[in-house]
Simulated assay, not measured.
Amino acid sequence: MPKSRLVIFSDLDGTLLNHENYRWQQAAPALERVAEAGIPLILNSSKTAAEIRVLRQQLGNTDPFIVENSAAVVIPPDIFGSDSEQVVHFGASRTEVLKVLSAQRDSGARFRGFADMKDDELAQLTGLDSASSARARERLGTEPLVWQGSEEELKRFEAALAAEHLRLVKGGRFYHAMGIFDKADGARFLLNKYRELYQERYGDQQLTAIALGDSPNDQQMLEEADIPVVIRGVNSKEVQLPSEKHAMRSLKPGPAGWNECVLNLLFEYGY
């Protein structure tokens, strides 16, 4: 009998997906084991709902997912008792974010956001194809951008956004202008949902949350988990691991590191 019920939250770019080519196949053995064990795998990313839907189809994933750093949580039908898909929103809308960014540009801030780009331009910048780039631009509450100013200007830009109740978060590839929410908000919301569901199904059996990420953008999500796992990557050394928790860092980067760490944890917890 497993020690406890597991729920896994995972970042995508640089974590489950290779940073260069967005492939996940190196994590296939662990993904198969997770699916066989019936463990919810919650994809938690700066990616849009349109992007994550395509990946979920490839993975055969049917669990809830968190989009745009917790701009929204998407809950498929029949997960928590609803017969239709539910979308729960957090923080400022994209329209509000773009309004603030426009005012900052008028004040001299130098950046280029997704709203400024055509699909082909974004494809060239990211290596995505044109259709994938179009999905990346279908946003609910955040605006990724490439900063083009100096470090000093960046500090002033961050302060100006903060004065408008927005945040600027550094991800693996872009900065993200967004409301006052982070990846932990969606994770916390779903953890509470799963605790209620599992209490009803299994009584007092413990629920253990595993979270995997590779950049400072994942810090709050990792801190929310019982087992934070930092996957080796471009900015992974900037991520702080809580000393009081069962925390780990992968030796391998991207999906290879994801695969290794998840398989080790599944073995440890008797799955």
Rank of each mutant, 00 (worst) to 15 (best):
A72V: 01
R23D: 14
K3Y: 03
F90T: 04
L98A: 13
E51N: 06
G213L: 12
A163P: 02
K47M: 07
K3P: 00
E153S: 09
G172S: 13
F189L: 15
R53M: 11
R56P: 03
S243D: 13
V239W: 06
D13W: 09
V87E: 12
M248C: 11
A162S: 11
K170F: 15
L6T: 08
S46I: 07
A109E: 00
L251V: 09
K183R: 08
M248H: 10
E68P: 05
P228K: 08
M221H: 06
L125P: 08
Q58S: 14
R156N: 11
C261N: 08
K237A: 14
E85V: 00
R53F: 14
A123H: 01
A247I: 01
D218A: 10
N192F: 01
N44G: 08
L31W: 05
S70H: 04
E260M: 12
A72I: 03
A37Y: 06
H246Q: 15
L125Y: 13
L128R: 12
G14L: 04
Y194N: 01
Y175W: 15
Q205T: 15
Q57V: 02
H165T: 11
D116T: 05
S93M: 08
N61P: 02
E68G: 02
T126K: 08
L140G: 01
V67G: 05
D13A: 09
E152L: 09
R188P: 00
L31T: 02
L43S: 05
E20Y: 11
G149P: 07
G141W: 03
G149E: 02
L166F: 00
A211H: 05
K170D: 15
G233E: 01
R23M: 13
R137S: 07
Q26W: 06
L41C: 06
D63E: 11
Y22R: 01
R94G: 07
K155A: 09
G257N: 02
N259A: 14
I52L: 10
D129F: 12
L12F: 13
G81M: 10
E96S: 14
E224N: 05
E51R: 04
E158F: 06
Q124C: 05
N259M: 15
